[in-house]
Structures are given as structure tokens and as C-alpha cells.
Design a protein around this nucleic acid. Sequence first.
DNA 1: ACCTGCATGTAAAAGGTTACATGATTTA
DNA 2: TAAATCATGTAACCTTTTACATGCAGGT
Lengths: 183, 183
Amino acid sequence: MNTLSYGLLSLLSHHSLSGYDLMLRIQPFWPAKHSQIYPLLAFMEKEEQVTFELIAQSDKPDKKVYSITDKGIDSLREWLSVPASDPVMRDELMLKAYCVSFVDPAISRKLFVSRLEHYQTKLQRYREKIRTVLSSEGLTESDTPGYRSPLFGAYILLNKALLTCRTNIEWCEWVLSVIPEAE
Amino acid sequence: MNTLSYGLLSLLSHHSLSGYDLMLRIQPFWPAKHSQIYPLLAFMEKEEQVTFELIAQSDKPDKKVYSITDKGIDSLREWLSVPASDPVMRDELMLKAYCVSFVDPAISRKLFVSRLEHYQTKLQRYREKIRTVLSSEGLTESDTPGYRSPLFGAYILLNKALLTCRTNIEWCEWVLSVIPEAE
DNA sequence: ACCTGCATGTAAAAGGTTACATGATTTA
DNA sequence: TAAATCATGTAACCTTTTACATGCAGGT
């Protein structure tokens, strides 16, 4: 049971999901490929942290829908009561930023322009997401789901994503303002 | 030559450094242990991206001080002209945040309080760092190093670190304000 | 016809962490 | 006296990515 497996339990604590859906949903918080998820789920099932039900589908391939067990909920509670380990961030742009002076400003600008676009696209997606999540429970954008609401976790995470995106956009724009257009 | 090796070249483009120093300096941007750095440096030396000089020390252990070669500078320029890959962030707290409703608010609060303290400590360190970096070239806090200044990279990175720290502090404080003190 | 999405899996390779190994000096 | 810092290295282990493998449905 590593961090990723607790992440899967965390997602399953709200809804039952297929391995494929789990893979898609965990991306923003803990990037992982299906090749990592599927064997982990098999292991977690053996450990009785999750169970699955085979769902036959006619239009799409059949799927295994996983649910958290009572034992899984216990694991989750225990995991929540120990402090979270430090975040790990690896960003190639930070390594490049340190030595941008070695190339022409036009080349440097491209790096930050494409990153800026990346964050602008993400911001759009998060904005839409927060609307759909809130409206799913009949809430508007000025409402805050209460602590015991099943939406609470998603809500605070989406707020974090929005704040982070905006900060990154701000930084990219500032960097572009201090790199000359040409020399 | 993977991303970490370019990161080492990036650091070496400014100063010659020992493996130990490289390990310490790359931490904020691309966490890596010495056990990963030393074999990589040996490989990079074989590839003629770097050279090293054995420096005997009396008070401390002897060290290998690495320098970037002309071939290394060429690699760096080429690497800078291709777009940076997407950043990868893995934060256990994000996984926990999604299911905090499963435990008592007091337990949840602890998670965010300790993370808040973590970022406050980091903010202090970055504030000191930016002062020492700027004053090393006789600049004050209102000055911005020019694009071709050897300080430019460090300066934009420290600004990013400050912005990110402040955003994270803001978010932790907000989360603590929406988690009840007790139920 | 070809690509994308849905859906599951395995195998090999690369990347990263922890542990083992050594040893002097300084600080608590 | 115990721990931390400086300094380098290897070996074992775990995590993550890439590639291999299959197959149907729907859109361009």
C-alpha cells in the first residue's frame, strides 16, 4: 500500500469507479498511467481494501467497477491521521529558466509563452469544472459546501487548482515582461 | 542525458560545483539524492559534457569540482530551444484533501496546519535568499537584474518560489477557515 | 481507411529512494 | 557522546514510464 493506492482509496470513498475512470480522475493530483493502476487495483483487491463487480456493456468494453470495503475505509482514516509527506514538484521549465540568458530572448520567450498557454487552457477547464461540481448539488458560485458535504474535498481542491493556475499565469506574464522582445 | 542531467548542466553553466553542491542546489527545482547525482556525473564526464578537477581539502574531505565543457554548453542551447515538458506535481495532501470529511475536523486541521507551517518556513528562507542573491551584485530589492545578467535566472526563479509559497499559504489559511474548529 | 475513446492487462526499461559503506571535523 | 556537515560511491529496492497486446464503436 503506497501513496498511489491511498489516492485510489480516496477517490473510491466518494463513488465506485472503474480502473479506467480512476486513472483519469487521479491525473490532476497524482499522475499515473493505466499500467500502474491496474496491477495496484488487483493487489488492493487481494488485500481486501476494495472489491469489484464486472459490468457488461454492449456499446463499450466490459469493465470492472471497484468499490471501497470497510477495511479500506479504516485504512483511509488511519492514513488521514498521519501528516502528509512533503509535495514533490518537478518542472523542466524551472531548470531551463535558470540559464535562459544563454540563448536569444526570442527563444526564451517561446518557453514562457507556451507555458502561459498551457496554464490558460487549464484555468478554463477548472472554471468549467467548479461550475459543474457546484451545480450538481444545486449550489451557486458564492456558496461553500459544508465540511461534511461530499463535495467539500473536490471544492477545496478546485479552489487550490484555480489559485495555482492564476499564480502561474501571473508569473509567466511577469517573466515575459522582463525578457526583452529582441536584442 | 535525461532531464536531471540537463538540470546539472544548467547549474554548471553559472559556476563550477562539486557533486555534493549540485545535489544541494538542485533540490528546490528537481529533487534528487546524491546516489542519483554521482553516477550521472560520471556518465556526463564520459560523454564530455563536463570535466572535473580533484580538489584536496585539509579540513573537509577532498572533492571533485565539475565544470561544463563547450560541448555541454552546446547541449544546453539545444535543450533550451525545445519546449519544456509539462510539470509534474505529486502532493499527498491533495489526495488526503479529497476525503477529509471522513475524519474529525481536528484531525483534518492538523494536516493543513503542518502544511501551513511548512510553507511559512520556506517563505522565510526564500526571502533571505533573494536578499543575499541581489546584494551579491550590489542590487537592492527594487532592482531587476537584466536579461543578460548572470543573476537573471536565479532572480525569476526566486520570484516564482515566493509567489507559489504565498499562494499556498493563502490556500491553507482559507481551508482552515472553512473547516470547523470542532463538531 | 484512420484516429480517438473506452477498457483491460503484461513486460521491459528508466527514474528515484533507501540502505550500505567510509571517515574526518564541528556543534550540541 | 551523539548528531550533523562535508564528501564520495555502490547495491537493492520501489515507482513510474514506455512499449507490447487486443478489440469494438463512433466520428472525420
